[in-house]
Computed example of a mutant assay.
Amino acid sequence: MKMIRSFNAATQSLMARLYTQMPTRSNRQRGASALEYIVLAAVIVIAVAAGAALLGGDTISDVFTKIQTALTSA
Results as ranks from 00 to 15, higher is better:
74 A>L: 14
33 S>N: 10
14 L>H: 03
71 L>T: 09
42 A>P: 02
22 M>Q: 12
58 D>H: 04
35 L>I: 05
41 A>P: 00
44 I>G: 13
37 Y>H: 08
27 N>L: 15
38 I>K: 10
74 A>V: 06
36 E>Y: 02
37 Y>L: 06
71 L>H: 03
42 A>S: 13
53 A>F: 06
36 E>H: 03
41 A>N: 07
59 T>F: 01
50 A>E: 05
70 A>I: 00
53 A>P: 00
45 V>F: 12
31 G>V: 06
34 A>D: 15
29 Q>W: 02
29 Q>T: 13
3 M>Q: 12
15 M>R: 13
17 R>M: 02
55 L>T: 11
23 P>D: 01
37 Y>M: 05
39 V>E: 15
57 G>L: 06
27 N>F: 12
62 D>Y: 04
14 L>C: 07
21 Q>P: 00
33 S>G: 15
34 A>G: 02
22 M>L: 15
65 T>Y: 08
2 K>I: 06
68 Q>C: 00
74 A>R: 12
50 A>R: 01
30 R>I: 04
54 L>Q: 08
5 R>M: 08
41 A>Q: 09
50 A>M: 12
57 G>Q: 02
74 A>E: 04
57 G>W: 07
29 Q>I: 11
18 L>I: 15
70 A>H: 01
23 P>A: 05
22 M>I: 13
64 F>S: 06
29 Q>A: 02
60 I>K: 01
49 A>N: 07
58 D>S: 08
41 A>C: 08
42 A>F: 09
10 A>I: 06
33 S>V: 06
47 A>T: 14
74 A>M: 11
35 L>N: 09
24 T>A: 12
